[in-house]
Write a protein that binds this DNA or RNA. Structure first.
Ligand SMILES: [Mn+2]
Ligand SMILES: [Mn+2]
Ligand SMILES: [Mn+2]
Ligand SMILES: [Mn+2]
Lengths: 218, 218
DNA sequence: AAATATTTTTAGTCTTATCTAAATATTAGA
DNA sequence: TCTAATATTTAGATAAGACTAAAAATATTT
């Protein structure tokens, strides 16, 4: 249906739209895709011709509903494959992203439907990100960053914001994963650092860590 | 490592080399790839530069051991994915080829190793074709075409030569699959047609059917 | 409101993989 | 062996997707 390049642009724009809550700029797309702004302009023309987004010179782009649906489907595939790699093939959660980047472009509606079923229709990927349904709808859940919690508050880890290998390996070392209960024992206002309790362990974490862990407080 | 186009050329040449047992001609490659001879010539130059095959103008090509290993690895991936699709996702054996054509290009040594293990290190794909090992070695088995059997001879179906959807669906209708025992009850020398016994059923098959079913006689 | 800085687009080039049409080499027939 | 048919290569073109450098539009300072 759509080329690999087109799918990757749509996916990047989809994510950027949610972050910026509005038009997405040429430079933002170029940076996210590790490409040059002039290449982005060319592609925006093409995607606009195909009615996947609206584009006005110098004004940035917005996905059409067709574009958004297409992007969500690629993300759906990416996340389902990540679940497969972790749950079935025993990959570690820090090593599945690159492989899913390739698998997400395999074209077959039936394959995805069967994979979804095989995996037990999961709602979240190994990093806690929601898996869009067949229509591209994502059920958004209440979650906040650990850094937003105050002293004495308690939350359950439900996802990571960054999912770089370094960060995920840090979390493993500290025995934090999806579902882990975390209690804030202390919070330093000067630098945002915290002391938290995880299981029986208590330790210090920097603001940067706290800003990349999603938790749910009930 | 190698591009999608390069991998597909290598795979086609690998198969053609086995069929012709010698140099593979430009036209044969063009026909197999559904492309034009001039495109093949260009690609042969490129693959020769990369030492994946030897090419002399007007003389056809032969894979180098590096080329053969690369081709076998793509075939290994193709067949492992076919096993996955049939065994784990409950696809029918007539609908997995197109999807495997895409999956075979996913790059990750670790993925293939883990997939192989997950599937229980299978030796054959759903069509009875052998799965090359990590080094590209294929264990070849004794098999012949059903058409080579004579009256009263008996064989076990171990594979199909063609695996078009039409043919596979015909086999299903006749309850023939890998492992099915087949006995030749009669053979017409004029047109090569046969009457065979499968389970309790006896029926007529054309030469074309008999020439596309591999059997093992012990 | 100018001047300056930043962002975005345009123009032109490159690589990969394809094609058509024409030229050349090889093979087969008379 | 000469000729005709077939196979293969060369030359030149195209499309996708990227790049650089320069031009144009927009945004930010003074
Ligand atoms: Mn990912
Ligand atoms: Mn993920
Ligand atoms: Mn196949
Ligand atoms: Mn097969």
């Amino acid at each position: 249906m759509y080329s690999l390049a087109e799918e990757n642009y749509l996916k990047a724009i989809y994510h950027l739209e949610q972050e910026t809550k509005g038009e997405v700029s040429t430079n933002a797309i170029a940076e996210r895709m590790a490409t040059k702004p002039s290449s982005v302009t060319d592609m925006m023309r093409k995607l606009a011709d195909k009615k996947l987004l609206s584009y006005k010179r110098y004004k940035g782009v917005l996905l059409t509903s067709e574009g958004r649906k297409t992007a969500a489907n690629v993300i759906r595939k990416h996340r389902l494959w990540e679940v497969f790699l972790v749950e079935k093939l025993d990959f570690h959660w820090d090593e599945v992203h690159e492989i899913a980047e390739q698998l997400e472009h395999v074209q077959s509606e039936k394959l995805i439907a069967k994979l979804d079923q095989f995996l037990g229709n999961p709602d979240f990927d190994p990093h806690g990100d929601p898996i869009p349904d067949q229509h591209g709808n994502v059920k958004r859940t209440e979650k906040k960053l650990l850094s937003e919690l105050d002293k004495k508050q308690r939350g359950v880890c439900v996802g990571v914001k960054e999912s770089s290998s370094d960060f995920l390996q840090y979390l493993d070392k500290k025995k934090i994963t999806i579902g882990t209960k975390v209690t804030v024992l202390g919070k330093e206002f000067f630098d945002g650092s915290m002391v938290i309790q995880v299981g029986r362990d208590q330790f210090f974490i920097s603001k940067k860590i706290a800003e990349n862990l999603y938790v749910q407080t009930n």
